[in-house]
């Protein structure tokens, strides 16, 4: 099982390395979307500071959606998704390998770039650290939940737009508590609750999302 897990992970990372433009596109999308807000709202730092955490979180969320559609789609069309089933290993475990690789190449870069954008919104350094922390906890949840939508819409017409419609409502709690933690900290409130909820959603989604994804993939393959 472990060697199968590793080979899936290695294959995904090698593929991402060969197709660097995919990663770069997601990053640029994040930068551009976040830079549009000051242009629309105005340059007053006091306003930007209030909306900053929310804007960065929505940006990260949109990036996750943008990249998600590809998690299983090419594997589905070229037949390699079948190999995951034919391996006889638990599909939900192999799915975790795929999502982990996906997060490493699309989620992690966003987390790393986020403080730069935070600086543009005039966030203080404690907020920047907290922003990175909440994104580290929250973006894997986005990838896990989002992959359910990606698996359900495999081979369906209008898959990318449909995935967004299915998945965005489920992103609400992560968005509320992720961005909320940074805002609450700026206002001098306690953030223990936020962090606990983010941790809990990470645990729940690691435990349950792969099961849903595995059944969705099996349904799509039939």
């Amino acid at each position: 099982m472990f060697s199968a897990f590793l080979s899936v992970l290695r294959k995904e990372l090698l593929l991402a390395f060969r197709q660097k433009t995919d990663v770069v596109t997601v990053l640029f999308f994040f930068l551009i979307v976040s830079s549009l807000f000051p242009l629309a709202v105005g340059p007053e730092l006091s306003t930007l500071k209030i909306i900053g955490p929310g804007v960065i979180w929505v940006g990260a969320l949109l990036c996750s959606l943008l990249a998600l559609h590809r998690v299983f789609e090419s594997d589905f069309s070229d037949g390699s998704l079948e190999h995951l089933v034919l391996s006889g290993e638990p599909l939900s475990i192999l799915v975790i390998a795929k999502i982990a690789a996906h997060w490493l190449v699309t989620g992690l870069p966003v987390v790393i770039v986020a403080p730069l954008i935070g600086l543009q919104f005039g966030l203080p350094s404690t907020s920047l650290i907290l922003l990175v922390g909440t994104l580290l906890l929250g973006t894997p949840v986005l990838s896990l939940i989002g992959s359910i939508g990606a698996a359900l819409t495999l081979g369906v017409r209008g898959g990318a737009a449909l995935t967004s419609i299915l998945i965005l409502p489920f992103y609400v709690p992560v968005l509320i508590f992720g961005a909320g933690a940074v805002v609450a900290d700026l206002q001098g409130l306690s953030i223990d609750g936020h962090i606990s909820v983010l941790l809990a959603s990470l645990c729940i989604s690691v435990a349950l999302a792969p099961l849903a994804i595995a059944s969705a993939i099996k349904i799509a393959l039939e």
């Binding site: 359900l152 409502p169 489920f170 609400v172 709690p173 909320g180 959603s201 849903a212 969705a216």
Partner: peptide, 26 residues
């Protein structure tokens, strides 16, 4: 396939609705 895929979505929804309600309230 539509039956089964949408059933999974509905079930994911059932798990999430209380979480969503709780977080919106907070």
């Amino acid at each position: 396939r539509a039956d089964r895929a949408s059933a999974i979505l509905a079930l994911v929804g059932v798990v999430n609705v209380p979480i969503i309600y709780f977080s919106v309230k907070w």
